[in-house]
């Protein structure tokens, strides 16, 4: 019995120590890991849609609690004014979830840029949403109106990628959803930008 207890205690002490050490390392590296993830996964898309900004949007970011989810907002500074925010939204594509970064100008409520961050669309077809810039640049400069964005076949204003209608619809839907989020959170975004 004593022997059993000794074994139990040894393993318990070992596990406790390692658990404590790991918790410490995790807390120590958490911020850096988050920054690295942002930099390598979302960084290229953010840089692309906020081209020409005079700050580093990856550093200039803030969070807003939207319902249960936290959303990251990346600020772009143009001509000395911090009035563009980019944020990510997710929607359904053909092969799974598509992550889309949408940048919006707060002053005139127009879309500054749209870019695909993550997707699992078919290579050569839907994947062109990310690789072919002519598709996503169609959103550039469009004002946010009441009606959602649609592909031309559905009576909208966006030329779909040929052979990838489902993906194109998914992108339009996700961008529309992003504008809804933007409208809902605009007051909070403005407050965060000022502070």
């Amino acid at each position: 019995m004593r022997e059993m207890l000794k074994l139990l205690v040894t393993v318990a002490v070992f596990s406790t120590f390692s658990g404590g050490l790991l918790a410490a390392v995790r807390i120590g590296t958490r911020d850096r890991i988050e920054y690295q993830k942002v930099k390598f996964v979302k960084g290229p898309t953010i840089k692309q849609i906020l081209k020409g900004c005079s700050n580093d949007p990856l550093v200039d970011r803030f969070k807003i609690l939207d319902g249960k989810n936290e959303r990251n907002f990346y600020v772009g500074e143009f001509d000395g004014k911090r009035d563009v925010v980019a944020f990510e939204s997710f929607g359904k594509g053909f092969g799974g979830d598509i992550g889309i970064m949408v940048a919006i100008n707060l002053e005139n409520d127009k879309i500054v840029g749209v870019g695909v961050t993550t997707h699992s669309e078919s290579p050569g077809l839907g994947a062109r949403a990310k690789t072919d810039p002519t598709f996503v640049t169609q959103f550039k400069g469009l004002p946010i109106k009441k009606e959602p964005f649609k592909v031309k076949a559905d009576g909208g204003q966006i030329d779909a990628l040929s052979g990838a209608t489902v993906t194109s619809r998914g992108v339009c839907k996700t961008v529309s959803a992003a504008t809804e989020t933007y409208k809902r959170l605009k007051a909070q975004i403005l407050k965060n930008l000022k502070s």
């Binding site: 074994l7 040894t10 393993v11 070992f14 596990s15 390692s18 050490l21 790991l22 390392v25 995790r26 590296t29 850096r32 890991i33 690295q36 993830k37 930099k39 390598f40």
Partner: peptide, 26 residues
């Protein structure tokens, strides 16, 4: 219980390496 203890030690350091790599060489 030596094997269990060894594995706990090894697993701890592996997780440390994993976190550090994520933080510095993503």
């Amino acid at each position: 219980v030596r094997i269990a203890c060894f594995i706990v030690v090894i697993a701890t350091f592996v997780t440390v390496v994993e976190l550090v790599m994520q933080a510095f060489t993503y």
